[in-house]
Design a protein around this nucleic acid. Sequence first.
DNA 1: TGACATTTGTCCGTATGTATA
DNA 2: CTATACATACGGACAAATGTC
Lengths: 228, 228
Amino acid sequence: MKYINVYKDIKGKILKGIYPPGATLEGEEIFCEMYGLSRTTIRKAIAKLKQDGYVHSRQGSGIFVNPPEFYEEKSLTTISERIDKTENIETTVLDFKTIEADEELSEIFNLSIGSKLFYYTRVRKIVDSHNVLEKTYMPYYLFKDFNKDIIKKSVSKYIEKDCHYTISHDIKNIKAINVDKELAQLLNMEEGSATLQIQHKVYLNKSILAQYTLEIQTKNNIRFVAVR
Amino acid sequence: MKYINVYKDIKGKILKGIYPPGATLEGEEIFCEMYGLSRTTIRKAIAKLKQDGYVHSRQGSGIFVNPPEFYEEKSLTTISERIDKTENIETTVLDFKTIEADEELSEIFNLSIGSKLFYYTRVRKIVDSHNVLEKTYMPYYLFKDFNKDIIKKSVSKYIEKDCHYTISHDIKNIKAINVDKELAQLLNMEEGSATLQIQHKVYLNKSILAQYTLEIQTKNNIRFVAVR
DNA sequence: TGACATTTGTCCGTATGTATA
DNA sequence: CTATACATACGGACAAATGTC
């Protein structure tokens, strides 16, 4: 875990402005001496910095600090994930109950029609930012002791820490939708206007679907940065 | 470049189904013998396979082939980039002219109002798939010999190969919009319905904006996969 | 429960290739 | 042309997680 410390150290210096955007970093050899580590380890740290968009490198030239838009708001951080990092989120649970799967849901979860599912909706307000409405479905047979308190906190923590499930991957589909009457009222938007809907599926090992969420954000915008 | 050959070989076998989803790959040591390469090199190839979503690995366990949704349609490949790979695109140029920057454009490009810009619109039909409408602006002072023939082919190649500029990065913003009358006719969509608009900025070194594109796709859907 | 072999992860030192200035 | 700096590659050693007996 030495390389991760180097990564954190350099990342911190970039975020603090000690290495400003456009700056040339010390060469790999210098870093080796500075941290007293081998070049392999330094390069692993640099590789992670590159992967996360903090720096880029050119052979024969050097390692350069990227401008902030490279690493801000990257890769579609929907709110679900941000909860673990900042506590600047107000959560209101609107609804929580168990329902029976209709045809659509049974197909999504690959369960028989009528199977029990947990269903909840919540609004999350990112302080000084936008609102998010989430509608989530989770199969009952996987999460028997699921309850309302968990929803106010972090559901993903519950899945991984309390239930000891391993989250394998998630798939997000982004779509434009017209705001309906219900949404318009809840999020204070204009009926019929266009907004982004994010469909979010969380999978456990063996492609078991653990969570199906529809997210609507009042902020009609998602940004990506790609480095050549 | 040895590792990239290994990468391509294994990737090919995954795509051909020789390694089906869920399969366990040969261990690293076996690969070393098979390809006659060191473990470092094999690991570099595996690392790239992991990065591109083809496989994942667990310490103490092995290297496993991911299901197709892990590597399909990843990371928002807008059409602009796909042109280099497949020739299955029909391009129709609808408009090509020079215009003068209004307030909005002058701000986007950081130029004074009235500066000359190239402007073109084109429709691209992905064979057996969907349509894309692009509206693009490019500053005149950077691309004096720009012409209609280039637009029919690859503009990004023109920027890099012919003009010898280096593309530093690009930023994409996704937004939901209501389809207006013009769009509805061009792309055979319903007026007022919601669809995705991708705003695409291409930057050269020193944060010079070389290209500003608004893209609208008839396919109202973008997918992402993230692996834990 | 514990011991053990297997497999990936991390790390070191060194050498050579290649793009850049 | 030369020096510099990153990229690729080799081989070896130990750590940590996993699965099995």
